[in-house]
């Protein structure tokens, strides 16, 4: 089937430096209302700055965000995950996500994974690796490994397609979901 080929071609492993965040991080503090409609290059100068002032200047492509429970709560603004994606973050690992944020991430093609215990897994700068398909999350700096929740095959296909809009182009309006 095309879908399994797509999933195989998609890189489900992610590896990068960790940026640690706490519980209940609201989208308001990922992208503040004052810059919500600014061009992305302006948004990128402020992404997550209220919680970590050094984040916008120091985030590098492939870095990971590792956080506590209910990450991305509050406003359903898609600009929040879009800004994290544009900053080059390769994956967000959190104990849990607010569901509109979760939905936005998969729909724009930004990999995220739920992993109980994630908030105690690493410190800023540790190297963390993730496999979306198996759900393993490993701190390569300390050697500690956790078992996260494997990403649902439907959502993996959405990520592999690059988000919901390219997925619709491939599958039509049923998103290939009628037989799942």
């Amino acid at each position: 089937m095309t879908s399994s080929t797509e999933t195989r071609a998609f890189q489900t492993a992610r590896r990068g430096r960790a940026w640690m965040f706490g519980d209940n991080v609201p989208t308001d503090q990922i992208v503040a209302t004052k810059v919500v409609f600014s061009p992305m290059e302006v948004v990128l100068k402020h992404v997550l700055e209220e919680l970590k002032p050094e984040f916008p200047a120091n985030v590098r492509p492939g870095d990971l965000i590792v956080a506590g429970v209910h990450f991305g709560q509050s406003s359903g603004r898609a600009i929040a995950p879009k800004a994290i994606q544009a900053a080059g973050v390769g994956c967000i690992v959190a104990e849990s996500f607010a569901r509109t944020f979760l939905r936005n991430c998969y729909e724009i093609g930004l990999p995220i994974i739920e992993c109980p215990g994630a908030s105690r897994l690493a410190r800023d700068g540790d190297v963390v690796s993730v496999d979306l398909e198996s759900g393993t999350v490993r701190n390569e700096t300390t050697g500690q490994t956790l078992q996260g929740n494997p990403v649902d095959p439907f959502l993996l296909r959405m990520l592999a397609a690059g988000g919901i809009i390219p997925l619709v182009r491939r599958t039509g309006s049923d998103l290939g979901a009628t037989n799942t």
């Binding site: 569901r99 939905r103 724009i108 619709v168 998103l175």
Partner: peptide, 21 residues
Amino acid sequence: AALGNDSYAATVMPFSKAWFR
């Protein structure tokens, strides 16, 4: 339920449909 922003452009507007778990 609230949807992600791109659901509107991808499925709600063109097909009047949305995916749900």
